[in-house]
Nucleic acid binder design. Structure first.
Length: 480
RNA sequence: CGGGGCGUGGCUCAGCCUGGUUAGAGCGCCUGCUUCGGGAGCAGGAGGUCGGUGGUUCGAAUCCACUCGCCCCGACCA
């Protein structure tokens, strides 16, 4: 039994919810603002977001997308143009009804998502098939008046990116939707080291106003699923509501086909939950604000020697990795170890008198706590390898956990038993009827998280609930 | 939005039930010295008006009402 090194954080395995909140505050990722459901993203948290932005934005640009920025406010009449859309979002929209001392003629919604305002602009910009595809993304904040909030996972205001594209055909739009879904999956698995399943949402769970919604879903340590990103095929629903038409090669005027897609600061929450441990954050090297921390260890008599080697190490490392050199003298090495572990720095490099004698440094992995000596002239090279190993191992662990907690249910009794006692994903055949979906939700609190891509045959399979012939084999889970 | 719990120096909490001296502790913080390979030791010091508002009372952290915020359960949630 390993000794717990950080005080005042509840054990992750015993109380995930408390652990999560405490870690976020103690590691200074975020703090509560004085208004309900709102938080301040502190520098340590924002640095993760900046890394997410950088790595995702690169992928968007590589696939032909450009960034723009649309207004925060949406006139009420615009929001109302697409019927399903307004119905879906109405309960959680914040309104501005006054400007200065004057009542507004028309209330302005604080965007809960930007389809309405963006489509209004697109209807002005799209005229010809030559204008398509239109591939725009924006990094922005949105506001949703949620009843239950939790830092990063569900807050009143949050940061995200939302892509909004316009295409000449259903096929083009569908291709875009799946391309983005692929980017999300690749990004989350490679950079955040979180295993996700990708698939389509049931009609009940899809985005308000979409034809189809695709999703990537991750499994949290308590066995509940978290929607990590969505990509919607909007069909012509919005183009008809907002009159986005183009004249095609055949000289016919056609309504455009659209998509929208997004991931949010919720990804930070997922990263914290999936990888953290009882001593605090464990951050994947690719998005960690600091990838390496160098801690020099010295007594008065070897201070100069150790510090000069430490500085040399720092100089060698800082060009390659996000490195912090913690040479503060007011804290002891032990204190620093605990502090940087709490903050999730993937690799710690210790350098002390004993190491100098052997011309080495000591590496300590945050994820495994594995400690091993590295010759001084191999530090940079080994650091690179170790960071890659950590990144890989974190994903492996997430993948193993997710697979181990993905089970097939033979019958409804077993289905309920799994969701009650072990949770995780339960894979089962479904007839496609909302009635059965609702029954499952009522009786187990689980919903259909996704319908996987076609492939597996449903020949001879029967709905886990009603026994009718199955249309799909789907993934159920309780969710955040 | 319904049920429950909780707001006291930066943090974790005691005090409240049974109102009454200058509101306490540990950690953290500041100063000095000694330390430094897993959250160092000693000495001295600073810091709170008890979430907010109103009420009861000679007197309120303590009792009452309202209100803001946080946590848990439920409802809701693309």
């Amino acid at each position: 039994m390993e000794e717990k090194l950080v005080k005042e954080i509840p054990a992750k395995s015993e109380n995930l919810s408390q652990w999560y909140i405490e870690v976020i505050r103690k590691a200074e990722l975020a703090d509560y603002a004085p208004m309900k459901g709102m938080m301040v993203i502190r520098p340590a948290g924002y640095a993760i977001w900046e890394n997410i932005q950088r790595l995702l934005d690169k992928r968007f640009k590589e696939t032909g997308h450009v960034n723009a920025y649309f207004p925060l406010f949406i006139p009420e009449s615009f929001l109302k143009k697409e019927a399903e859309h307004v119905e879906g979002f109405a309960p959680e929209v914040a309104w501005v009804t006054r400007g200065g001392s004057e009542e507004l003629q028309e209330p302005l919604a604080v965007r809960p998502t930007s389809e309405a305002i963006i489509c209004a602009m697109y209807s002005k910009w799209v005229r010809s098939w030559r204008d398509l595809p239109l591939l725009i993304n924006q990094w922005a904040n949105v506001v949703r008046w949620e009843k239950v909030t939790r830092p990063f996972l569900r807050t009143t205001e949050f940061l995200w990116q939302e892509g909004h594209t316009v295409h000449a055909s259903f096929e083009d739009a569908q291709e875009e939707v799946l391309r983005i879904l692929g980017i999300y999956q690749d990004f989350i698995e490679k950079e955040l080291a979180i295993k996700v399943y990708a698939g389509r949402k049931s009609d009940r769970e899809k985005f308000a106003g979409a034809l189809y919604t695709y999703t990537v879903e991750a499994l949290m340590p308590d066995g509940k699923a978290l929607q990590a990103g969505t990509s919607h095929n909007l069909g012509q629903n919005f183009s008809k509501a907002f009159e986005i038409r183009f004249e095609d090669r055949d000289q016919k005027l056609k309504y455009a086909w659209q998509t929208s897609w997004g991931v949010s600061t919720r990804l930070i929450g997922a990263t914290v939950m999936v990888h953290g441990d009882d001593d605090g954050l464990v951050l994947p090297p690719k998005v960690a604000p600091h990838q390496v921390v160098i801690v020099p260890i010295f007594k008065a008599r070897d201070k100069d020697k150790v510090l000069s080697v430490g500085e040399k190490l720092h100089a060698d490392l800082k060009g390659r990795f996000r490195t912090v050199y913690d040479s503060r003298e007011e804290y002891t090495p032990g204190w620093k170890f605990a502090e940087w572990e709490l903050r999730g720095v993937p690799l710690r490099i210790e350098i002390g008198p004993r190491d100098l004698e052997k011309n080495q440094a000591v590496f300590v992995r945050r994820d495994t706590r594995e400690k091993f000596p590295v010759p001084l002239d191999e530090v940079v090279h080994r650091a690179e390898e170790v960071l890659e190993e950590i990144q890989r191992d974190l994903f492996k662990r997430s993948e193993d956990f997710t697979r181990e907690n993905t089970r097939e249910a033979k019958d409804y009794e077993e289905f309920r038993e799994i969701l009650e006692e072990r949770r995780g994903f339960v894979v089962a055949p479904w007839c496609g009827r909302e009635e059965c979906e609702l029954k499952v939700k009522e009786e187990t609190k689980a919903t259909i998280r996704l319908i996987p891509p076609e492939g597996e045959s449903v020949e001879g399979k029967k709905c886990i609930v009603c026994g009718r012939p199955a249309k799909h084999v789907v993934y159920f889970a309780r969710s955040y």
